[in-house]
Design a protein around this nucleic acid. Structure first.
Length: 820
RNA sequence: GCGAAAGUGGCGGAAUUGGGAGACGCGCUGGACUUAGGAUCCAGUCCCGCAAGGGGUGGGGGUUCGACUCCCCCCUUUCGCACCA
């Protein structure tokens, strides 16, 4: 019979709640801030959440037993599109829908018994939270880090609506299937690029972050060092600035191309014949989706403007083209075309029969324009390059930059792929942007005393119309200018929800503060986050914004730290038994509630943790429950068979006075304590559980009347506690291991003396293959081990008629006899 | 295309400063206890072979006394970036 988990769970959930076991302490001795990524309440929680939170819960409980004061909060990322979609589809209010999902999810989490301090909960769609989004926004604005600019957004011409990137499927509107186009709107941006260098450089400080996340962030930031060189437009002498990382190829320029969006194109004079073609090309390019413009590598097109540019170094005249492989948003939006040494330029030149000029020769071979089938992009020796001829590429790069700077033809420049963060959303369900547009004073921030700007509720049409639904809510939009008191309008847009999740971890610490965003002193005690657990999907989004906010608040004097997280852990995804992602539409979502009703929380936790390493994706199958269920039943039966313990936990046994089976058990116990401790630290729970299973297999072989048996069982209950908290509480109570809760007991330390072994197994190899093993005292001398090995009958048969070439001994491990 | 990670029994997975491949668990086979067993316990379970023995960590080569582990080439899978001048 399996034990009655329902009864045990109910009992301890109540006790934990009543005694406030997880309440965050005020006076800290040693702190541990354990955090899991803020969930979006889309319904009830699923197995993926369950896995994520169980990882955090194991670590939290382990740290509690090590005497740490814990902060382990959870809240809700409550703004966002799905709430509006539900509102449109089911005629529900986004707020009611969201709050209902939160209460369902919270109830599940409570039932599962994750060690959260629910007093710390935050809900981002509530005014007491988003007020501080608005406050931060104004701080950004005051520092010049929030600004308005025109930006192209996705636009569905049929629905007449702005679409989020996620609502554009293969270039088409998700709702009506119409080809999505671009529309230019005034938008708010956060100037994250001002922090690009620090965000990049400080990655080196993040020793507790996985290398792949850091690499992804480095690539995303995309630092590139080069030089801006000013070409000029023939006849008018207008400046045509280009960015290049390869100034050593400047003599190889045979054409120039500019982005269709480039502002110069609007003012530049062109002969009517060319102007018409250029305009038609621009029109086509703008209609192209991003995918079409960027995904097709190889096919490149453009049109000639009829104008020419002058190369400031060579003085040569080259054709100026418009081509949409040139991005308006990177560098200067104009590119120098060097077909011999850039593959894109090469393809472009081939297509339009533009000249190819070799200016870099590789070592040991000679390129020839007519025979080239692709560009030579590596470094080499500069040729056909005037006074720079004969220099190596690396020298040439330096020399050309020096020359350009001296002659004031341009300057060194660092470019980043990272763009400023567009935060405006033409949506209802988000934080109102706290700005007022006054016809006289311009854009004016809402004074701090008037915050929060409350999101209006009631009869609002959520269906997007290409502008924010708030624009039609008169009571909201119409206001007075804080400066001149005249009639003015509020900003109708709301903020990207990534703003909410960029600083929530700090608000947890002081979530009830109505006077300021948080108390600096309290925050200084708890920050940084010691362990942050979440999915890899946020590597370049949330985790970058979150670092950006931390640095900003640091610069403002609100935070001591300038990085939010010491150790980052990315858990793997949970897939169904067929290896498919669980999703509502597929109908394959497994609810943790169903599982725990069947087998109990502890079994479900163990099965989840045992099935795969926590950082790898796992297939969820109920088959995995059987093994852990049996294991817990065995533990429970040990509990049944042993009465109130009289074991002194501080006691250590002297292994030399124990019987053989006692010594084996005692040694294994201490090895297990060591292994489990190390594995929890490394977040390798599957091997920790395997170690405990191994141990119970050994323990079962020991006489129950031995004091070592009781001692071992008690210690097993303690190291099992973070994994199977209910079972551990049950045993702890029976055996009187601590007052009130097993999580107030001390985490066991292993006895180093017990780990020492006097007899060990030596491996004997002949030509590197295992041929025998020897039981012998630890610390055998090389010669002695060799002598024993050669003396073994088994080994002798392999040495027959062979000549021993040499022997290799690895102390306390093996001897390898090499024969011929 | 570029970058990163990975590939081990029927299955999930252990083991890497180079030293006993397959820990632990599932499943399966046989047995014990049973009126019964989807409970529990015992034994077995990488492959070929009656055995002795041989082979074996995606494939091929290499370094080494010795390679799942290190190096080179190839194949497959997953993820990230996708014209960044």
């Amino acid at each position: 019979m399996p034990y009655n988990f329902k009864e045990i769970e109910a009992k301890w959930l109540k006790i934990w709640e009543e005694t406030g076991l997880y309440k965050t302490k005020e006076n800290l001795q040693k702190k541990f801030y354990c955090l899991e990524m803020l969930p979006y309440p889309s319904g009830d929680i699923h197995m993926g959440h369950f896995r994520n939170y169980t990882i955090g819960d194991v670590v939290s409980r382990y740290k509690m037993m090590q005497g740490f004061d814990l902060l382990h909060p959870l809240g809700w990322d409550a703004f966002g599109l799905p709430a509006e979609e539900a509102a449109i589809k089911h005629k529900l209010n986004p707020k009611d829908w969201t709050l209902n999902n939160i209460s369902v999810s919270r109830a599940t989490l409570k039932k599962i018994g994750i060690s959260y301090d629910w007093d710390k909960e935050i809900i981002t769609c509530q005014p007491d939270y988003y007020k501080w989004n608005q406050w931060i926004f104004i701080k950004f604005f005051e520092k010049g880090l929030a600004y308005r600019a025109k930006a192209l957004v996705n636009w569905c011409p049929k629905d007449k609506t702005v679409l989020a990137n996620e609502q554009v499927e293969a270039g088409k509107c998700w709702r009506c299937g119409t080809e999505v186009t671009k529309k230019e709107l005034e938008q708010w941006f956060f100037r994250i690029t001002a922090y690009a260098e620090r965000l990049l450089a400080d990655l080196d400080k993040l020793n507790g972050w996985p290398e792949n996340v850091k690499t992804m962030q480095r690539n995303w930031i995309g630092k590139s060092e080069g030089v801006e060189i000013n070409f000029t437009l023939e006849k008018t002498g207008e400046k045509l600035s280009v960015f290049t990382t390869r100034p050593d190829t400047i003599y190889g320029v045979t054409f120039m191309s500019m982005a269709p969006e480039h502002s110069l194109l609007k003012s530049m004079e062109m002969e009517p014949k060319y102007k018409k073609e250029v305009e038609s090309y621009i029109g086509k390019s703008v209609l192209k989706s991003d995918i079409e413009r960027t995904a097709t590598i190889g096919e490149k097109d453009g049109v000639f403007t009829g104008r020419y540019a002058i190369n400031p170094l060579s003085g040569e005249k080259v054709a100026l083209w418009v081509a949409d492989y040139v991005l308006a948003t990177y560098g200067t939006g104009i590119v120098m075309g060097v077909p011999a040494h850039d593959q894109r330029d090469f393809l472009f030149a081939k297509k339009y029969n533009l000249p190819i000029k070799i200016v870099i020769q590789p070592q040991g071979q000679k390129l020839n324009e007519k025979e080239m089938s692709e560009a030579y992009e590596d470094e080499g020796t500069m040729v056909n390059s005037g006074e720079f001829g004969g220099l190596s590429s690396s020298e040439g790069i330096k020399k050309v930059i020096d020359f350009v700077e001296k002659k004031k033809l341009g300057q060194k420049k660092v470019n980043y792929k990272l763009r400023d963060w567009l935060i405006s959303r033409q949506r209802y369900w988000g934080t109102p942007i706290p700005m007022i547009d006054c016809p006289k004073c311009g854009i004016v921030p809402v004074p701090e005393k008037d915050l929060p700007v409350i999101l209006p509720e009631g009869d609002i049409d959520y269906i997007p119309k290409g502008r924010s639904p708030l624009e039609d809510v008169k009571e909201f939009i119409e206001t007075n200018c804080p400066k001149c008191k005249r009639k003015a309008k509020r900003d109708p847009d709301t903020m990207d929800t990534f703003v909410d999740s960029s600083w929530y971890h700090i608000r947890y610490i002081d979530n009830k503060n109505s006077k300021e965003i948080f108390d600096k002193k309290k925050v200084a005690c708890w920050m940084p986050i010691d362990l942050y657990i979440g999915g890899i999907t946020h590597a370049t989004g949330h985790l970058l914004y979150f670092r950006f906010f931390t640095k900003f608040l640091h610069d403002m004097g609100y935070l001591k730290v300038d990085e939010p997280v010491t150790k980052l852990f990315n858990h793997g995804m949970v897939l169904d038994a067929q290896g498919e992602v669980m999703s509502k539409s597929k109908g394959n979502v497994v609810s943790p509630i169903d599982v725990i009703n069947k087998v109990g929380v502890d079994t479900a936790r163990l099965a989840m943790l045992f099935a795969a390493p926590s950082d790898k994706e796992m297939l969820w199958t109920e088959d995995g429950l059987t093994g852990t269920e049996r294991f817990l039943n065995r533990v429970y039966r040990i509990g049944e068979s042993l009465d109130k313990s009289v074991v002194d936990l501080k006691n250590k046994f002297d292994i030399t006075t124990l019987s053989d089976s006692e010594a084996v058990t005692y040694r294994k116990l201490n090895q297990t304590i060591k292994k489990v401790t190390e594995d929890i630290e490394a977040l390798q729970f599957n091997t920790a559980i395997a170690a405990m299973m191994e141990f119970i297999n050994v323990l079962d072989g020991l006489d129950r009347n031995s004091p070592v048996y009781t001692y071992s069982a008690v210690n097993l209950a303690l190291i099992l506690a973070p994994f199977a908290p209910f079972m551990a509480e049950k045993l702890s109570e029976k055996w009187g291991l601590s007052k009130g809760s097993v999580f107030k007991a001390q985490w066991p330390s292993y006895d180093p003396d017990a780990l020492k072994e006097e007899e060990i197994t030596y491996v004997v190899q002949v030509n590197g293959r295992l041929r025998a093993t020897l039981e012998a005292p630890v610390g055998l001398q090389d010669e002695e081990l060799t002598r024993l090995a050669l003396g073994s009958d088994k080994v002798k048969t392999y040495l027959k008629d062979k000549e021993i070439v040499k022997t290799i001994v690895v102390p306390n491990k093996l001897v390898n006899i090499v024969v011929k």
